[in-house]
């Protein structure tokens, strides 16, 4: 297992290296960040001064060597816009995004799982059909469109929930969170639901498919024949069967939640790192984009690793080797 983890980490380093090269040179091709930074009334001398101040006057490969030298020592450069270490900026925004993604994940399971299991047990019932129809809608609606609809309905028309931003944060064990107060939950409810929508549909489908498959399995048929209560059959036998794909997929989808938070954070003005990335792209704040990619890749590698380990715990037949078909 240790060898497995080490090999994974080694590959992760390669992935990070490749991504960083692509992003570093890619962003450089797009445009000159100086034009996004300086005030328009500045003349050419000011442009040059800014380039010197940010090290943009050097050839790109020299900038890259400089970056790599720094990166090896843990310095990913400073934001062009903010002047602060890019990694610090991202890490300061990360708790907000993680909080949002986790609550969305939680919502996906809490809402999606019962609906999906029900739809799988009684596939021909009306309610099951309605659930599946809704899940198709959930798959099909563009996130950004739903986001504003949620704001319009729950905040503007009904006035139940705040439209934008994050609740007051408190520090717990060094991590900022807004989830310890009721007010914090009112703030996170809409953006998390918006982000969760796709995943709710996904969980419904996974749970339904898993339930239907499991219902046909011999051991479930046997359990039924033995006269076990329906609740026990669902709770033990079916759950066991559907939890594996759900844990796997949700683990992998956690990354996509983090990525899609770009959209949700923009709409709900949620102060997370997705919003930071979008602004960095708009302003060509290269150090922030590069650092974001590095942080996210590390994050995903860790998630994948955790998923694999969990997978092996949930399903002892799976061994942690690289040769998975």
């Amino acid at each position: 297992m240790l060898a497995f983890i080490l090999r994974r980490l080694g590959q992760a380093m390669l992935v990070i290296g490749a991504m960083v090269v692509i992003v570093f040179f890619g962003v450089n091709v797009i445009g000159d960040p100086v034009y996004m930074l300086i005030s328009p009334e500045m003349d050419q001398n000011a442009v040059e001064a800014t380039k010197v101040a940010l090290g943009l006057d050097k050839p790109i490969w020299e900038q890259f060597i400089y970056f790599v030298t720094g990166a090896v020592q843990g310095d990913l450069g400073r934001s062009f816009v903010h002047g602060e270490p890019a990694i610090k900026l991202i890490l300061s925004r990360m708790p907000a995004t993680m909080e949002l993604a986790l609550v969305a994940l939680l919502m996906a399971v809490v809402i999606g799982l019962p609906l999906g299991v029900y739809a799988g047990l009684k596939p021909e019932s009306r309610l099951a059909k309605a659930i599946m129809a809704i899940s198709i809608l959930g798959f099909s609606l563009p996130t950004f469109w739903v986001g504003l609809m949620l704001i319009m309905f729950f905040s503007v028309m009904l006035g139940w929930l705040p439209a934008t931003g994050r609740g007051d944060v408190v520090r717990v064990l060094g991590i900022e969170t807004s989830l310890l107060s009721w007010q914090g939950w009112t703030f996170i409810a809409l953006p998390a639901l918006n982000l969760a929508l796709l995943k709710i549909s996904l969980v419904i489908r996974l749970a339904r498919a898993g339930t239907r498959e499991a219902a046909l399995m011999d051991y479930v048929k046997f359990a039924r024949a033995k006269g076990l209560a329906q609740s026990r059959i669902v709770g033990v036998h079916i759950m066991k069967n559907i939890m594996i794909p759900i844990v796997t997929v949700l683990g992998l989808e956690f990354g996509s939640l983090v990525a899609f938070s770009v959209v949700t954070e923009t709409i709900f003005a949620w102060p997370g790192m997705g919003k930071l990335l979008l602004e960095a792209i708009q302003r060509l704040d290269r150090p922030v984009i590069v650092a974001y990619v590095m942080v996210v890749v590390v994050l995903f590698v860790v998630i994948n690793l955790v998923v694999d380990v969990l997978y092996s715990i949930l399903d002892p037949r799976v061994r942690l080797t690289e040769a998975k078909a």
Binding site: M152, S155, V156, A163, T164, G165, I267
Partner: peptide, 18 residues
């Protein structure tokens, strides 16, 4: 002072009393 960059979001915040 809160940063609300997206146009509809900013208006929604005003309409909702945020």
């Amino acid at each position: 002072m809160r940063v609300l960059r997206s146009d509809p979001t900013r208006v929604a915040a005003l309409l909702a009393g945020d």
